[in-house]
């Protein structure tokens, strides 16, 4: 009897956590469209989408990591390094752009693999391993570029354009990466194993899941998604900048958490992460439209993150 109630409770609270973020987004959109006449236009909403794209793509990658109970602080730096790699090999190195793109993705994956090796085999806490990578990747980006922006190859910077004169390609890429993340998490063995590891690593290990191998895949995916985000960002700016995406890792983590994931692992979904990233972008955009100063914006966003985690904690206390 008691267990029955527990079941429905946890299911309805899971629904709330998932759709709580959706509900918050809807409320936010309605409020802003009432407060500002400029908000609810197609141009502005697509603009919000473009603003959200880079954070969302990074955050999809972070979702994998957070689902396993880890954290990846290096994604912003890895994004910048990957973009610099692309631009540098295509211009200075003279490689054809498709090869440069592959190298750029490989850079992201390599950074992720280094993180994973330190974590899974070196037994470093993910926080420390990826904090080190945050510095290393950013430093390498500065070293390669000698501190200056490098222009992106013409073909690749079309990623910053629009298709059919209205749909921005970054939004398209964001949606595609979101679908990819959702499929990996929901439908593949590594994805399901990530939830098991985040839920109870020892139980996962004793069920024959090769935990270290799954962690390699997890952090490699995070690196790959970071590379895509870096390239999208550089395309929008038409140049790869070594200082790009600094601090984005925190936005990415915030998006994942607002989206209902738990930093202790085992919970999180791609759709939630998308909603989390959109909430952050809508907030920034709306506060801009309302001419709220950039200083106050930081305060508001901080409050929103705290509220999101508070809700998560209260929900957890409720189910235990």
């Amino acid at each position: 009897m008691r267990s029955k109630q527990g079941g429905t409770d946890s299911r309805s609270s899971a629904w709330l956590a998932e759709n709580g973020a959706v509900a918050a987004l809807v409320v936010l959109v309605i409020a802003l469209s009432l407060l500002s006449s400029d908000f609810l236009s197609l141009t502005n909403l697509l603009n919000v989408g473009v603003q959200a794209a880079v954070t969302a793509i990074l955050a999809f990658g972070s979702t994998f990591v957070i689902v396993t109970g880890g954290i990846d602080l290096s994604v912003g730096s890895v994004a910048a390094l990957s973009a610099i790699t692309l631009a540098w090999t295509a211009t200075e190195g003279g490689l054809p752009w498709p090869a440069a793109v592959v190298l750029s993705l490989a850079t992201g994956v390599a950074c992720g693999l280094v993180n994973a090796v330190l974590i899974a085999y070196g037994k470093l806490p993910p926080f420390i391993a990826t904090l080190a990578m945050l510095g290393i990747a950013r430093g390498l980006a500065l070293v390669i570029s000698q501190g200056s922006p490098i222009s992106m190859p013409e073909a690749v910077s079309h990623l910053g354009d629009t298709v059919g004169r209205f749909l921005p390609i970054p939004v398209l890429v964001m949606l595609v990466m979101g679908v990819v993340a959702a499929i990996i998490l929901n439908r593949t063995f590594p994805g399901r194993a990530m939830y098991a590891i985040g839920g109870n690593e020892e139980a996962a290990r004793l069920s024959g899941i090769k935990v270290s191998r799954i962690k390699l895949i997890t952090y490699a995916l995070s690196g790959a998604f970071a590379a895509v985000a870096g390239v999208v960002l550089a395309s929008r700016l038409a140049s790869a900048q070594p200082q790009a995406a600094a601090g984005y890792e925190l936005d990415a983590i915030a998006a994942v958490v607002i989206g209902g994931a738990s930093l202790s692992g085992g919970k999180g979904r791609a759709l939630g992460t998308l909603v989390g990233a959109l909430i952050l972008a809508v907030l920034r955009n709306g506060l801009n439209l309302l001419s709220v100063s950039a200083f106050w914006q930081q305060v508001v966003i901080g409050v929103v993150i705290a509220l999101a985690v508070l809700v998560d904690t209260l929900r957890r206390r409720g189910t235990n």
Binding site: R192, Y195, A196, G199, N200, E202, A203, A204, L206, G266, K267
Partner: peptide, 13 residues
């Protein structure tokens, strides 16, 4: 609880 089950996941999982 510590080694056999993923407590936060469903029975099917």
């Amino acid at each position: 609880k510590g080694q056999g089950l993923v407590l936060g996941a469903g029975i099917g999982e």
